[in-house]
Design a protein around this nucleic acid. Structure first.
Length: 320
DNA sequence: GCCAGTCAAGTCCCG
DNA sequence: CGGGACTTGACTGGC
């Protein structure tokens, strides 16, 4: 089994290279000259995109072929008070540079829009805002030259006191999601509400790839055994041009179990891989750890001492 | 230069 | 029903 590791949004090795600089709406309103305030937003957004390119180059230098872009690249892009702001035009040039770089050095790039994207809401305006946020991700992907299919992983949404109904609401709302937005989506089991099999129910019904989050599963499984649903998870990727992917993180401690640890528990990850070996040829694993790419490097280092792991490069390996 | 408090959005939980 | 917690990185203001 061929395994590629990826990480999230920013590198702890690159200083002054945040892709998530921001301006709050409060700060925005404090600037008297609205045009000047918008230009400041644009400067921040441009800097964020330029920093993304620096990070991608860093990834390239370290063999990292799998990366999740920050979903906070353009501050206030979806705010209703800035509905008239054409945020994309000023970003054409830096986005084009990313497009050029990725065409020369292909890698898998994903997004994880934040938890304010709720597709199973009953509130029409919340659904509208959610679709708008996904539209923004689509536009960015398009301009970076990244194929759109299955690039945004999101959660199912709220439980609303009746999870069965909440799942049916997702199916209901799905009909109102434009097809090109539908094609962006992957669904992930979450750590408080929807379990692996509940999420799989939607994925199977609607033809959406399922992203298994092992840590979330441990925090919220309703007694389900993941091995019993693993084959179903694999099947949801039949409709995708991309290899199956999953999320890997470790609990910070017993008390803050759901919070992310700085690093990944290598032994636990190794055991997991041994369990799934043979079921698939390739797996992309997104490392969600506070130490970002350093956690990835440390994990690779620890895995390299296992006898049946054959290291290919700094961020991928074969499990024999 | 450091620390505490604050921040668009949604949902959940507590009082 | 109203308000705070949740989560996260980044920014502001006070010292």
């Amino acid at each position: 089994m061929y395994v590629r590791l990826g990480y999230v949004a920013m590198s702890v090795h690159l200083h002054h290279c945040s892709p998530s600089q921001t301006m709050t709406f409060r700060q925005f309103t404090k600037i008297k000259d609205r045009e000047a305030a918008i230009r400041k937003l644009e400067r921040i957004a441009r800097s964020n995109i330029e920093n993304c390119l620096r990070i991608l180059k860093h990834n390239r230098a370290h063999d990292i072929q799998f990366f999740r872009l920050s979903s906070r690249l353009i501050p206030l892009a979806n705010h209703e008070a800035l509905a008239d702001w054409d945020y994309l035009s000023p970003l054409e040039q830096p986005l084009k540079e990313i497009r050029k770089f990725l065409s020369e050095h292909p890698m898998r790039i994903d997004f994880h829009p934040d938890h304010f994207v709720v597709l199973n809401t009953k509130d029409v305006s919340t659904l509208k805002t959610s679709i708008q946020a996904l539209h923004l991700h689509e536009q960015l992907l398009k301009r970076m030259g990244i194929p759109l299919k299955h690039r945004c992983v999101i959660h199912v949404g709220g439980g609303y006191e009746d999870q069965e109904k909440a799942l049916e609401q997702f199916i209901h709302n799905w009909a109102y999601v434009p097809e090109r937005i539908q094609n962006l989506i992957m669904l992930e089991n979450d750590d408080t509400t929807f379990t692996m099999s509940q999420t799989l129910y939607l994925c199977e019904k609607l033809g959406i790839p399922f992203v298994f989050d092992f840590h979330h599963h441990e925090a919220n499984n309703g007694g389900e055994i993941w091995e019993e649903h693993w084959e179903r998870a694999i099947q949801t990727w039949n409709c995708s041009p991309l290899p199956m992917k999953m999320h890997i993180s470790s609990p910070r401690d017993e008390v803050a179990f759901r919070a992310h640890h700085d690093y990944i528990n290598a032994e636990q990850f190794y055991q997991f891989l041994c369990n799934v070996k043979g079921s698939i040829d390739q797996l992309d694993c997104m490392i969600e750890a506070k130490q970002k790419d350093e956690a990835l490097f440390r994990l690779m280092h620890e895995l390299s001492s296992y006898p049946n792991i054959e290291v290919i490069d700094q961020a991928s390996f074969h499990l024999k």
